[in-house]
Amino acid sequence: MADRHPQHGDGRPGDGIRTFPFPVEPGAGGIGMRVGPLGTGRTWHPDAPLDRVHRIDFHVVMLFDDGPVHHMIDFAEYEATAGDLLWIRPGQVHRFSRADEYRGTVLAMQPGFLPRATVEATGLYRYDLPPLLRPDAPHLAGLRAALTHLRREYEDSATLPLSLHTAVLRHSLTAFLLRLAHLAASSAEAGRRTESTFTLFRDAVERDFATNHSVSAYADALGYSRRTLVRAVRAATGETPKGFIDKRVVLEAKRLLAHTELPIGRVGAAVGFPDPANFSKFFQLHTGQTPAGFRAELR
């Protein structure tokens, strides 16, 4: 288990959030990967409660058989349901939901298990790619078949010598990750093709969210009707413009609460709430926690 380091405020190792290593104990022959069923009571380490914010130093891919499941990755909340996948990369902060039941298959892979050429071909360290993936029926069938084959090979540790068993696992894992990487890249490309209306709105929110929370004000500034803006944002993200703005404000507030020592009142002012009471009410509405409670959970 990694030691707790002083907080550096950059959101990476050293910021006070615990980092846990690859769970080698029950692994087949000590190899650098594990695959098996999702379920309650599982953990990376006895001291790593999964429903607390933490980071891991290995890759995790979860394929869900049921849902919805709400999972936090890098302070963004993702809702996954049956047939969806979550891909968490080394160093990303995440937290399991206390309320949701996780059902499906989980793959954990230690960095260095695959050769460099495979790592590059599968985009293992493409942190710009989306963690939540929603394959269509043909892609999902291929991913399920590849993951089922990988799991079968992983569990059959008696047929082959360890060296051959490990080599077969590397090949099977590569086949699954190539499919997964293609899905992730395709999802990212589809996101880049969103309407220019949304792109302009997104850029405006990124620039002005700390001072402007009004959908109408954004629509007027961009020269669109409110109805046009609502349609474009919903098509690109599945949510309303107001929901998009609020999510960005909450993310910034979480970053400031987690990675700075600013008083809570100043955090609120920095994201457009000069009244601390209004900020606390807004934050609790969107997160289910007070700002003080959120900060305390990370410390």
Rank of each mutant, 00 (worst) to 15 (best):
R4L: 15
H8Y: 12
P13N: 04
P13C: 00
G16I: 08
V24C: 10
G27Y: 03
G30R: 05
G32V: 06
G32A: 07
P37Y: 12
R42K: 15
L50D: 09
D51E: 13
H54Q: 09
R55N: 02
I56V: 13
I56E: 10
L63Q: 09
F64W: 07
H71C: 02
M72P: 00
D74F: 00
F75P: 01
A76I: 11
Y78H: 13
E79D: 00
D84E: 06
D84Q: 02
L86I: 14
R89T: 01
R89D: 00
P90G: 01
P90N: 02
G91R: 05
G91S: 08
V93H: 05
V93T: 13
R98M: 11
E101H: 13
R103E: 07
G104A: 10
T105S: 09
Q110G: 03
P111N: 07
P111G: 06
P111H: 12
V119N: 04
V119F: 08
E120K: 09
A121S: 12
G123N: 14
L124Q: 14
L124D: 12
R126I: 00
R126N: 13
Y127M: 10
Y127I: 04
Y127T: 10
D128G: 14
L129Y: 04
P130L: 04
L133G: 03
R134H: 12
P135W: 06
L140W: 04
A141K: 12
A141D: 15
G142W: 10
G142F: 08
L143G: 10
R144E: 12
A145N: 08
L147D: 06
L147H: 02
L150H: 01
E155C: 11
S157Q: 15
A158Q: 14
A158P: 04
H165C: 02
T166C: 07
A175F: 13
F176N: 07
L178E: 14
L178A: 10
H182I: 12
L183R: 08
A184W: 05
A185K: 12
E189I: 11
G191Q: 08
G191S: 05
R192D: 13
T194L: 05
T197R: 12
F198M: 03
L200F: 12
F201D: 00
F201S: 00
R202F: 10
D203H: 09
F209Q: 05
F209R: 11
A210P: 07
V215T: 13
S216W: 00
G223T: 05
Y224V: 02
R226P: 01
T228Y: 04
L229S: 00
R234I: 01
E239L: 11
E239I: 14
P241D: 04
G243Y: 09
R248Y: 04
V250G: 03
E252V: 10
A253H: 03
K254D: 02
K254I: 10
H259T: 14
T260D: 11
P263W: 06
I264M: 01
R266H: 12
R266M: 11
A270P: 01
V271R: 01
V271K: 00
P276Q: 04
T290C: 10
G293A: 15
F294Q: 06
F294Y: 15
E297G: 15
E297H: 13
